[in-house]
Design a protein around this nucleic acid. Sequence first.
DNA 1: CTTAGTTGGGAAAAGGTTTTCCCTTACCGG
DNA 2: CCGGTAAGGGAAAACCTTTTCCCAACTAAG
Lengths: 351, 351
Amino acid sequence: MASDDPPVPVFPKPVTLRDVAARAGVSVATASKALNDQGRMTAETRERIRETARSLGFRPNSLAQSLLRRRSFTVGLLTNDTYGRFSLPLMSGISDALVDAGVSVFLCNVEEDPRLGQLHVEAMLDKRVDGIIATGKRIDRHLPVDLANLRVPVIYAFTQPDPDAVAFVSDDGDGARLAIEHFCRLGRKRIAHVSGPASFAVVHERAQAYRAVLTENGLPVIEPLLGSWSEAWGHEAVARLFDGGGKKPDAVFCGNDQIARGVIDALRERGLGVPNDVGVIGFDNWEIVAEATRPPLTSVDMNLAGLGREAGLTLLSLFGGKPATPGIRKLPCRLVVRQSCGRLPDGEKDG
Amino acid sequence: MASDDPPVPVFPKPVTLRDVAARAGVSVATASKALNDQGRMTAETRERIRETARSLGFRPNSLAQSLLRRRSFTVGLLTNDTYGRFSLPLMSGISDALVDAGVSVFLCNVEEDPRLGQLHVEAMLDKRVDGIIATGKRIDRHLPVDLANLRVPVIYAFTQPDPDAVAFVSDDGDGARLAIEHFCRLGRKRIAHVSGPASFAVVHERAQAYRAVLTENGLPVIEPLLGSWSEAWGHEAVARLFDGGGKKPDAVFCGNDQIARGVIDALRERGLGVPNDVGVIGFDNWEIVAEATRPPLTSVDMNLAGLGREAGLTLLSLFGGKPATPGIRKLPCRLVVRQSCGRLPDGEKDG
DNA sequence: CTTAGTTGGGAAAAGGTTTTCCCTTACCGG
DNA sequence: CCGGTAAGGGAAAACCTTTTCCCAACTAAG
């Protein structure tokens, strides 16, 4: 029997500072100081210890370091975004900001389950994370966890923050403004807006910017069509906008890329060309969708990675002792121009 | 000026075992034993200590515990799947398997950058992770990191493993078999297969299963059409299959959901009804796509969460000292039936 | 030759928990 | 009243690193 068992791999005992010190013939104190550029000793001793450490493959045990410094160099990222559509780009930004400081990220998906949330938050606190970042899949809903009065700083990114917390969200009004102004520059005159359910705060924020920019430009405001975030709604919205009598829009600003996809398809079914007859702009810049539409979709990018970076950097400066002003900071969007809007007369790219 | 500065939040000092012991009037040793159900003492003493700990909100410092036990109760998850399309469902499964054991997960996205990979692996090892799980976005490519001869066990899930490693992947042949057998049960006679690039191993694995099942059922094999993973390729494949002369297929098995989406749209453009004229099955069961097609797409699900669960459980048993047999374990897929294949004559649901 | 100062390096405590041993007290039988 | 045993609890080491002090030896100045 025993011979059938797979060989149990034996992992080498990690080499400790004590090993290095013994091998170099010094005390652990001296060894520590040599490796950390502290204390006084001959350059020769220092170099000898370093060389010993290198040859032994010594890596300091960060658990011991953390215990002493009362900092674990870890942070927790809490999300309820199962598919990672929003949280992974965010995570990339966070990680990018933190990796150079030697900080690692625990990722926890709490779904919509308060018990699971509680469990993960406690696990994080037990692991002595230095801070927590909360994120989600929409800006106007809380995660199903209570993050008030924790023993560590909490930062919110792309989710509804607690009052008096530090938070970063995308500036959806800015995003809408970018889109509509783009249409205006291209000379579009009748610009419609097809968006998601009225229950989403961003729907109103974008609609408001939509109205404002049109008014500023002396263009007619078509009352925004609110529905769902789906392709199917894009189809239906086109039916409402184009199948009745009256003047037809020559541009549609959509609440997300899936709606835009539906809009583009529905326009084609009606024999309307994109971008020639109608320009279309989406929101989210979900590449997998935006690059699959025909033509590829110009879309508003919320710069989630940038949001993550800011959140990470803020946490770092908090660790460094600099206090951060509470409040919600809105970060600008950017427009990713593809081919669904047509070109400027002067031949600017896409335009 | 100082009055303009935001208030720097002061976090309460964590309560230690020493605090509990002092408050309960016992030694730290006794306190520890009381809380861990160890040692001998009167039930009364034990309960008093516990009550004290509760009232003080004591949570053991897991850094100190880890240092002593030489186990950090953390694992690292390495991925190069930027958008989390595959790694987040996997992560959910892993987390699910580990959370009850008190194990948390560091997530690291290494993109395709070997330097970044090296950096993150070293950070994980320094943090004393108990194990590492490697995952990716395709089964036949290595991550850009060297995971051989690490000081901790490594498990591969949904990525190309090193030789002699423990690995879990989806059984793509099984997935293809499920799809084709489903078509056969529904009485489809001419079943085509539209797949991705020949450079992907799974493309051949699925094609082989496709041929095998057709042969078993005495049905004609149409040479699989290999192209790209895109919607556009779905359109083109339909053109090739349906625009020439000869017999037309009555079913198409697609290599992913995006191809299937293209196929369904292209069929509709030709006036062919899905599922009545042609049945369509996709692969990946990416809900956001599969539920947006008209009609909703029947698709093969690779059960990534299950894969993650297995990987997590294996790691746990490894921690428990039970060796795991090296080798690649293929986990079965399952077919998620929606409305793109039609119903059985006897009225079974959809398919 | 003494004294002050400098240089190179070590001892020990700290961080918070677990665990192994050991000690004290109480109790029981004789 | 004495010896033995078990029960209840504590002291201390261990995990690994960092940092503060301290000591010994040497140099230079007086």
